[in-house]
Simulated assay, not measured.
Amino acid sequence: MSDEASPAQGTARSATFLRRKAVAFELGITRHTLARIIATDKRFPPFFEISPGIEVIERSDLEKWIRQKKLTARVLQQR
């Protein structure tokens, strides 16, 4: 076995991508509710097409959006 790290084991974290159904599942909402959030929240990270008909979002972008929502909620609660 070589000492070289495989791409999956390397120091750089590989990106994880989620389709709409998986994003809805992660958020605990329906795909219909997700569609409403996407339509009304301009800060929601955009999906992009990786193949015809296959749209994904990067997990790290979704996590960043969630952190921002939590921070905003805390600030509003302190008022």
Rank of each mutant, 00 (worst) to 15 (best):
P52T: 02
S2W: 04
L27F: 08
R43C: 03
K21V: 12
Q68M: 14
F48S: 09
D61H: 07
H32K: 07
T30Q: 02
A22G: 07
R13A: 06
T30P: 02
A73D: 13
A22E: 15
E63Q: 14
T33I: 07
R43W: 04
L18M: 07
L34T: 01
Q68A: 12
G10D: 12
T30I: 07
I50N: 02
A73R: 12
T30N: 02
R13G: 01
L27E: 04
P7A: 09
Q77W: 09
K21I: 09
Q68T: 13
E49D: 04
L18G: 00
G10S: 08
L76G: 01
S2C: 14
A22V: 15
R36W: 10
Q9K: 15
V56P: 03
L71I: 10
E49Q: 12
E26A: 12
L34V: 00
P45Q: 06
F25M: 11
K42L: 03
A35L: 06
E4T: 11
R19E: 05
I66R: 13
Q77M: 10
E63M: 14
A5W: 13
F48H: 08
T30V: 03
I57H: 00
P45A: 11
R13T: 06
T40Q: 07
E26T: 07
T16R: 08
L76E: 14
Q9N: 15
K70E: 14
R20Q: 15
G10E: 07
Q77L: 15
Q68Y: 13
L34H: 02
T16W: 06
A22R: 15
R67N: 11
F17M: 09
T33A: 11
T16A: 07
A39Q: 09
F44H: 05
S6C: 13
K70Q: 10
L34E: 00
A8Y: 01
A5F: 12
F47T: 00
R79A: 12
F44Y: 04
G28S: 04
S14K: 11
S60A: 13
Q78Y: 10
H32V: 11
T33Y: 05
I37A: 01
P45K: 03
A8V: 14
I50F: 03
A73E: 11
P7C: 03
H32M: 15
E55P: 01
A22M: 11
P46Y: 01
A24M: 05
L76F: 06
R67S: 11
P52F: 02
D41E: 00
V23R: 01
R20S: 14
R67V: 02
A12M: 10
K21Q: 14
L18C: 00
R36H: 08
I54W: 09
A35E: 09
G53E: 12
A24S: 13
I37D: 01
I57R: 00
A24L: 05
F17T: 15
R74H: 12
D41F: 00
L18E: 00
G10Q: 11
S51L: 05
H32W: 09
R19Q: 14
I50V: 15
S60Q: 10
K42V: 12
F44K: 00
A12S: 08
T33N: 05
I54Q: 10
A12R: 12
A5E: 12
A39L: 03
E58C: 06
S14T: 08
F44R: 01
Q68G: 10
T30Y: 00
M1V: 11
